[in-house]
Simulated scan of single mutants.
Amino acid sequence: MKTKAWLNAVRLRTLPLSVSGILIGSGLAAMYGATDWTIFFLALLSTLGLQIISNLANDYGDGIKGTDNDERIGPKRAYQSGELSSTELKTGILIAVVLTLLCIGILLYQAFNGLPEFFLLFTVFGALAVWSAIRYTVGKSAYGYKGLGDLFVFAFFGLLSVLGSMFLFTKYLTLAAVLPAIAIGLLSTAVLNLNNLRDHNSDVQAGKFTLVVKLGMRRARQYHYLLVVGAFLCMIFFIALNASQWYQTLCLLAFVPLGLHLRKVSGVVEPKKFDPELKIVALSTFFMALFFYLGFNIFL
């Protein structure tokens, strides 16, 4: 058994961030009086499945292209280190896709039984999400190598994750819900941007033209400030307009470590020092989403 190798390929530390959009979307639905534990847990499982597909595909795609090499600063990947072969990774991706599609199918049946138009629409969204998770680094036209990763992360892990999960419960959307959806999208993109800041030198050598490579380190750092500050402003506006209890403001505490994080980012000289900041942004985003969910659902 290669349990440790598979856990390495799955990248457990990325999973909390992936469910942040579901927590926010479910909290929004609860704010409007719509809750369903079955939909909630199926949505969590579906999102975890998509993240695992993305992680395995990224390990495979960057591995066979040679992007993950000895010059790379971050944790060793399963294919790069020889722990898993390309065939094993492809098998793992296939299994993850099948299980995730099954989970998505059950989720959509539970949410839209008797509403075929919504079922079909979200089936398309689910298929696009799976395609996006794989094509980030896999294939000759992998969009992650063309600087489009930020756009896809913002769209799928921000807008679609939050607004889509809210719609599963409510069957409608509101203008106010767009603010936290944008916030999660911006913070998820910030995590990707940090990853690309860390890997800038090896990406340049491998011909992986991320947005950081295209912008340059100085502008990419400025872009990072805009992502985090933009998320903060979106959440401030949403809370100011919608919070009715003091504990619903607790989600904003997540921006304290994020503020400290920006100070550290401004002083980073060696790319490897961006790596610890990934965990700070990811966990801060997760806890913001968790407190949001609790404030607008459990304690409401």
Rank of each mutant, 00 (worst) to 15 (best):
G216P: 10
L120Q: 11
I64P: 07
N193H: 02
N297H: 15
S86Q: 14
I93Y: 06
V19R: 09
V138R: 05
I53K: 11
F41S: 11
G126N: 07
A43K: 00
G82Q: 11
L175K: 10
L28N: 06
V229E: 01
I134T: 06
T170P: 03
R72P: 09
C234E: 01
A254P: 03
T123K: 05
L233A: 12
F156I: 11
L215N: 02
Q248M: 04
G295K: 14
V98Y: 06
G295S: 12
F156H: 08
T189Y: 04
A29S: 13
T174C: 01
G25M: 12
R198N: 05
L56C: 02
S54M: 07
L186P: 11
N58E: 07
D59V: 14
L283S: 08
L290C: 02
I52W: 03
L192I: 14
A34N: 14
H224Q: 15
M31V: 03
F209P: 00
Y79C: 03
Y109E: 13
P257K: 01
D70A: 15
Q245L: 13
Y60D: 09
G74L: 02
T249N: 09
S18P: 06
G82S: 12
R263G: 12
G147A: 09
G82D: 14
F238D: 00
A43P: 01
F119L: 06
L252M: 14
A190E: 10
L48G: 09
K279D: 15
